[in-house]
Design a binder for these strands. Structure first.
Lengths: 344, 344
DNA sequence: GGGCCAAATGATAGCGCAATCATTTAGTCT
DNA sequence: AGACTAAATGATTGCGCTATCATTTGGCCC
C-alpha cells in the first residue's frame, strides 16, 4: 500500500510526538505518566501532538525501561464455572480502577497445567499474582516465591499460604451444613460430589466429620465423581444415590448448586417431593437457587467480595503500605430455604 | 536481605544463562524460540543452565525486539453474563494452543468504556483483536482500523464489519421464534427484554416484524428495561407484563433464559400453569433451560464454537493464509421444549 | 585434497521508553 | 540587585531481547 501523504504506516513513537510538539521525548513521556510535572502550556501542546498523530505508547518499551508491567496475573481453575465469574468481576473492577491490567489464565483444575500457566504468566512480569487455592506443584510454588511479588491465594483458607490468603474454610462450611441438617432432625444425610477438587474434598471431609461426630455411618450415603459438575450430572448422581442408598436417606448435601438444582429437577420428574420427602442443600448460592421452587438451601459465599479483597490486598502490598492481615477469612453463611424441612 | 551464595536476587537474564552455558546470548534465545536451529549438545547444555538458574524470559524485551506480542486482545461487554463464559472458553482454548495469550477486558455494555478499553488493549500491541458486536464509537473504530491487525467482531452478523465477523442474525432468530409460536397457534405473544443492548434490540425488532407480518398489534405486549438481566428481574417483568396486558397474552418471548427462568419460577408461585395457560420461550439455551420443569423452549446458540471460530480466524489471518470467508454465520436453532404448547 | 555448501554459532545494533542526572528558567527573599 | 531555591525541561544511557549479517565448522563431492 502506498501513501501519497507523509503519513506513513510506520508506528508513531514518542520521538515523533516530541518532534511535532517541539519538545524532547522525555517531556512527552512525562505528559503521559506524570502530567503534573509539566507546565500547562507544554502539556496542551504535547497532548495535541499525541491526538493528531494518534500516538499509542508502546507498553513493552515502557515496561522494559521502567521494570513495571502494571499487570496482575490471575489463575483460576475454570472459565466455565460461573462461580469464578463473580470473583473475576471483583478482580477486574478493582484492578481496572487502579490502572492494572489483568492477565487471566485457566488451569483446568490441573496443578500441572497451572505450573505451565504460571510460567507463562511470570514471563509477563506481573507485579502481583492472584491464584486459586493451595495445591500448586512444588516447582510452581518455588517459581512463585522466587518471583518476589505479592501473591494472594484465594477461595480457601490455607495452613501455609505462600504469601497472602483470602478465603473461607470449606471444611467448616461442610460441617456446618450437616450440623444444621442434624439440628433440623435429619439423620440419614447423603452427599453428592463432582469434580472433587481440593475445596470440594474439604466440604466432604467436613460432612464426614460432622456425621462421625453424630455417630452416623455415611458409607452408603456418598456418591462422587471426578467429572466436571453440571445440572445434568446432578440429575444422574441423584438417581444413583437414591438407588445405592435404597431410598433411606432423608436429605442430601450437594457439593454445589448445579448438582443440587440437577437433583431438584430430577426429583420433580421422579415425583419425589422436596422437602417433604427429602431435604436438599447446595453450595455457593447462585442466583437460581433463590428463585427455583422450592427455593434451595445453600451456602452463600461472598465471591465478588473475595475478588475485590484479593485484589485490594495485592495492590496495597504493591503500594508498599503495611498489610494488616496476611490471611483474611471472608466467611460464608448457610441460607436455609424451602428445600430443607424441619424434620423434628 | 543478604545472600552468602552468588545467587543474588537480581533477575536472571539471557546473558546470565549464556555465561553459565558457555555460549552466546543469541544461542540461548534460539534454544527458546527456534530449538531446531541449535545442535542437540548445546541445546541440552543451555536447557540445563536455564533450569538451574530458574530463568524466565522477559516478554517485554522479547516483544520490543521482535515487535511480536503473542497477545490477542478480547473485549466483551460483561463478565457476569454467563453467555460469555462459553465464548471465552473457546477463545482461551484455541489461543492457548496456538501459543497466544489473551488479554481480556470488560466494557460493561458501554461503547465509551469500550473505547477506553480498546485503547488500553492496543497499547499492549495485540497481534489481533476479538471484540463484541458493532456498536463501537467512531473513534474506537478508527483506532482499530489504524492498528492494522486482524479483527473479529463476534456475536452478531454485521452489515459493515470492520474486518472479519462471526455471529448470527438476532433479528432473524427473534422473527423465527415468533413464527414458531404463531405456527403453534399463539396470537397474543408478549416480549420481555432487559439490558436492551444491540443484540436484544435486534431480537425485539425481529419479534415486532413477525408480529406485524401476522397483523397482530404488539403495543401492550412488550415490557423492557435497561437494567441488567437476571432471574429476579425476570420475575418482576413477568408480573408487570401480566398486569399491563390484562392477562390476555398466551405466550411470552423472553430476550434471554435468565428472564425466562425468572418468569417460569414466578408463574409457578402465581399458580399460572406453563405451558397450559401460557407458553414461554427464552434465548441462549443455557444448561438450566433443558432441565427445569417444564423444560424451557429456547434458542440454542453455539457459543463455544463462536469463540473457537473467531479465534481460529484471527490466527489464520496472522499466519498469512488467505481467509475464505470474512463473515461467518454460525447459526442458531430454536429448540422447542415443554414450556411451549401447541395451541391449535 | 581442495573447494564448496549447509548448518551451527556468534557479534553487533537497536527496538521505544523511562531513570538518572544535568541544565535552564522562574520565583523568592533579604 | 544578588543569591539562592524550586520547578520545568533536556541529554544520555540502558532495560533484555532478537533481527541481521558475519563467521566458523563439518560434511561431501569430484
Amino acid at each position: 500500500m502506498r501513501s501519497t501523504k507523509n503519513t506513513t504506516h510506520k508506528k508513531v513513537t514518542l520521538v515523533d510526538v516530541a518532534a511535532v510538539a517541539g519538545v524532547s521525548a522525555i517531556t512527552v513521556s512525562r505528559v503521559i505518566n506524570q502530567p503534573d510535572k509539566v507546565s500547562d502550556l507544554l502539556r496542551r501542546q504535547v497532548q495535541a501532538a499525541i491526538d493528531s498523530l494518534g500516538y499509542i505508547p508502546n507498553q513493552f518499551a515502557s515496561s522494559l525501561a521502567s521494570a513495571k508491567s502494571r499487570v496482575i496475573g490471575v489463575a483460576i481453575p475454570s472459565l466455565s464455572n460461573i462461580v469464578f465469574n463473580d470473583v473475576l468481576r471483583g478482580i477486574y473492577e478493582v484492578a481496572g480502577k487502579a490502572g492494572y491490567k489483568v492477565l487471566l489464565v485457566d488451569t483446568h483444575y490441573s496443578p500441572l497445567e497451572e505450573e505451565k500457566m504460571v510460567r507463562t504468566l511470570l514471563s509477563q512480569a506481573p507485579e502481583a499474582m492472584i491464584i486459586t487455592g493451595g495445591d500448586q506443584t512444588r516447582a510452581c510454588q518455588q517459581l512463585l516465591q522466587k518471583a518476589g511479588i505479592p501473591i494472594v491465594q484465594m477461595m480457601e483458607l490455607l495452613d501455609q499460604p505462600l504469601d497472602m490468603n483470602v478465603g473461607f474454610s470449606h471444611w467448616q462450611a461442610g460441617y456446618d451444613v450437616v450440623s444444621k441438617l442434624l439440628e433440623a432432625g435429619h439423620t440419614r444425610i447423603g452427599f453428592m460430589g463432582a469434580r472433587m477438587d481440593p475445596r470440594v474434598q474439604q466440604r466432604m471431609l467436613g460432612y464426614k466429620a460432622a456425621m462421625d461426630a453424630a455417630g452416623i455411618d455415611w458409607k452408603n450415603f456418598i456418591v462422587t465423581t471426578p467429572e466436571p459438575s453440571s445440572i445434568a450430572l446432578g440429575g444422574e448422581l441423584f438417581r444413583s444415590l437414591m438407588a445405592s442408598s435404597q431410598g433411606v436417606i432423608d436429605s442430601i448435601f450437594c457439593c454445589n448448586d448445579d448438582l443440587a438444582l440437577g437433583a431438584l429437577f430430577e426429583s420433580q420428574r421422579m415425583n419425589i417431593r422436596i422437602p417433604e420427602q427429602l431435604s436438599l442443600c447446595g453450595f455457593n448460592d447462585i442466583e437460581a437457587s433463590q428463585f427455583v421452587n422450592p427455593s434451595l438451601t445453600s451456602v452463600h459465599v461472598p465471591r465478588y467480595e473475595m475478588g475485590v479483597k484479593s485484589t485490594e490486598m495485592v495492590i496495597r502490598a504493591l503500594s508498599g503500605k503495611p498489610i494488616e492481615e496476611k490471611q483474611v477469612n471472608i466467611g460464608y453463611e448457610v441460607r436455609l430455604r424451602k428445600s430443607t424441612r424441619n424434620a423434628k
